[in-house]
Every structure is written in structure tokens, then in C-alpha cells.
């Protein structure tokens, strides 16, 4: 089957205070539709860098990156922006939501950017919030929600557009283990029941244990890749 993500020989070097830091070196990495992949590895191993490159937020210095078969290299800033809008769902470690918008509005605005009609927007936002058990909290602002609830709203926003892939960088970083487990059950359900392709980056063993494929990074290179 065709890959959602296809990285070939990807390298990324940061010039940190003049000293070049090789965050990724020659990474080959493919993800097929419907996979639930966890990028694992110690801090500084390049997980975030790889996720950012896959998510079209950062560019590889060397190598090729294809998303749904589209080569990212030649795309302009606004083309990349559109690509992120339509094909990728992001769940960030923190600061995911807009504080002045309600949960519903936080889910709706991304569809507003896409040009979805108001009625369809409202329906889809309502559906996804209900599915994630947030129906009662739709009108609350992020400040009135717990960390776990906020992260669920962020997932609602990320999947409401039916992206090709959901990218989550350290999604459990600010959550306790009970809440993390709820979140992981949710991700597993989305993956198994709705076929959402998920790639997470984490150093949390709990998160890794939920993924069906674990990719181990070390010093910017993939050292281990196993499916369970």
C-alpha cells in the first residue's frame, strides 16, 4: 500500500551557536495508512525534529520527504501552510488551544480556515466533541477545562478535518498517568475503529506500550523498528 509518510535519507543539522548539531542523519522512515507508530528514544535523539519535518513545519537539509506522495521540498511557505491545514492533525505538548475561544470554537476554527460551511462545521464539531466525551464542555473555554480535557479538545481539533496523519509530540508530558491512559485509549480507539494514522514522539513507556509499531531513535538515527 502507498505510504502516508515517506522519508528517504533525511538529515537535519542545526547551527547551534555556530556549532553544527546533527539532529537527524540519514533517516529512512515510512508510515502506511492506519498505522499507530511511536517514535521513542532519549531526550535529544531527534524525535521532535523528525516529527516537525514530517509535519511540514521544518525542512530537511538532505533527503526527500513525501506526504501522501507529495514532495515537500519544492513547496512555498503558503503551500506548506495549506498542506498542514488539510492533511495533518497536530497535537502539541502544550499550548494547544486558543484561550479566548470555547472548546467548540477551538474545534470549529480549523474548519473555518478550510472554508467549510457554517452548518457543516457546527455538525462536525458537535459530533467529534460528543465522540470524545466532551459534549457537556463544548461551551467552556480552555481555562475552565482540566489538562486532560484540554488535550482531548486538541485531539478533537486535530481529527475533525480527517487528516492523513495525526502527529502528537509528547502528548502526555503535562498529564498524570491516569489521564494519560484515558488519552491513549482514545488514540487507540481512533486508530482501530476509524483508521486514523497516528505518529507520536515520546519517551514515556506508557505511550510506547499503546503503539503497534515502535521506532527507536538514537543520536538522530533509527536504531530499532518493530511492530507488535
Amino acid at each position: 500500500m502507498k505510504s502516508v509518510i515517506d522519508c528517504r535519507g533525511v538529515s537535519r543539522t542545526y547551527a547551534d551557536d555556530g556549532v553544527p548539531v546533527r539532529a537527524l542523519q540519514g533517516v529512512d522512515f515510512q508510515v502506511a495508512p492506519g498505522e499507530f507508530v511511536s517514535l521513542a528514544g532519549p531526550s535529544g535523539s531527534g524525535k521532535t525534529t523528525l516529527l516537525n519535518i514530517i509535519g511540514a513545519l521544518d525542512k530537511a537539509d538532505e533527503g526527500l520527504v513525501f506526504l501522501d506522495g507529495v514532495d515537500l521540498a519544492p513547496l512555498s511557505a503558503s503551500e506548506l501552510s495549506d498542506l498542514r491545514l488539510h492533511r495533518i492533525g497536530f497535537v502539541f505538548q502544550s499550548y494547544n488551544l486558543i484561550p479566548v475561544l470555547s472548546a467548540r470554537e477551538n474545534v470549529e476554527f480549523i474548519m473555518q480556515l478550510q472554508g467549510v460551511a457554517p452548518r457543516e462545521r457546527a455538525e462536525r464539531a458537535h459530533d467529534v466533541l460528543a465522540r470524545l466525551g466532551l459534549a457537556d464542555m463544548a461551551d467552556r473555554r480552555p481555562g475552565e477545562l482540566s489538562g486532560g480535557q484540554q488535550q482531548r479538545v486538541a485531539i478533537a481539533r486535530a481529527i475533525v478535518t480527517n487528516p492523513s496523519v495525526l502527529l502528537a509530540d509528547e502528548p502526555s508530558a503535562n498529564l498524570d498517568s491516569a489521564t494519560t491512559e484515558e488519552l491513549l485509549n482514545l488514540l487507540r480507539r481512533l486508530n482501530e475503529d476509524q483508521g486514523v494514522t497516528i505518529v507520536t514522539a515520546t519517551h514515556d513507556p506508557l505511550v510506547m506500550s499503546y503503539a503497534r509499531r515502535r521506532v527507536q531513535l538514537k543520536d538522530g538515527a533509527i536504531v530499532h523498528d518493530e511492530s507488535v
Binding site: S78, S81, R84, L85, F90, F92, Y95, N96, I110, L113
Partner: peptide
């Protein structure tokens, strides 16, 4: 950071 997030998820700079 809020504005960065908006742009990360696909709001154009303009």
C-alpha cells in the same frame, strides 16, 4: 505561542 500554533495548524501568515 498562540499565533505560532495558529500558523502551525495552517493559518497563513497574511
Amino acid at each position: 505561542r498562540e499565533l505560532g500554533m495558529l500558523r502551525a495548524v495552517g493559518m497563513r501568515a497574511a
